[in-house]
Amino acid sequence: MSEMSELEKLQRMCRVVREDILRMIAAAGSGHPGGSLSAVEILVGLYFSRLRHRPAEPDWAERDRFILSKGHIAPALYAVMAHAGYFPREELLTLRKLGSRLQGHPAKGRPPGIEVSTGSLGQGLSIGVGLAVAAKLCGYPWRTYVLMGDGEIQEGQIWEAAMSAGHYRLDNLCGIVDRNYMQIDGSTEDVMMLDPCADKWRAFNWHVIEIDGHDIAQVVAAYDEAASVKNKPTVIVARTIKGKGVPFMENKAAWHGKAPNAQELELALSQLY
């Protein structure tokens, strides 16, 4: 298979995942489409290309670890996991329904493959530090990935974790910031300025890679670069568009945490690009 066709395959997967996200959230009647749609390439590039994992054997000891620190985009993770083979795709439509394994925010082991429960923002990078420290301590070869929202890094605990990852020189840890410049109450720069974002991470002794987070080739290349960096953790600051793929949702803070109704779903699916 040529390089080009692999990228095309990943791009096609991104489109299917976006459709699933929209259908899941519409069926649930609540959820977070904006940030789910902005992180699709980040997740697809990881789960279908660079993450070492065995969906049929979720507890495989040597698997890479992935922590969804921005737990509210669980629909994107569930969709990607379903397509990867962790559980049947039909289950996606049970999102947020009583008795479903697909909780509003990821809960450990529901379904298997969710490493820890997340959802309270700002905690995931600390977990990643703990996993990466454990791997170093025991000489395990696996890597740890943590996906954060950009609004999320306003939480102080992120910087406690960033400081410790730099201190421990955790080159087996890769953070990703979904830099869509939007949070619930508006633009990140209006609510609480994050730029210069990359400089902040550099100042905490991280290697920083800035990419277009919707260019799947750049996403995959960034994971490779991160794996090659020694003696410091890497963060990928992925410039993205909140609501990416659905024109009427793009860059609209209102679509951070609102489900489309039936009519809006139809419109979204017809416009999806």
Partner: peptide
Amino acid sequence: GVAAGLAA
């Protein structure tokens, strides 16, 4: 949080 990762 780090303790959680180690326990995981």
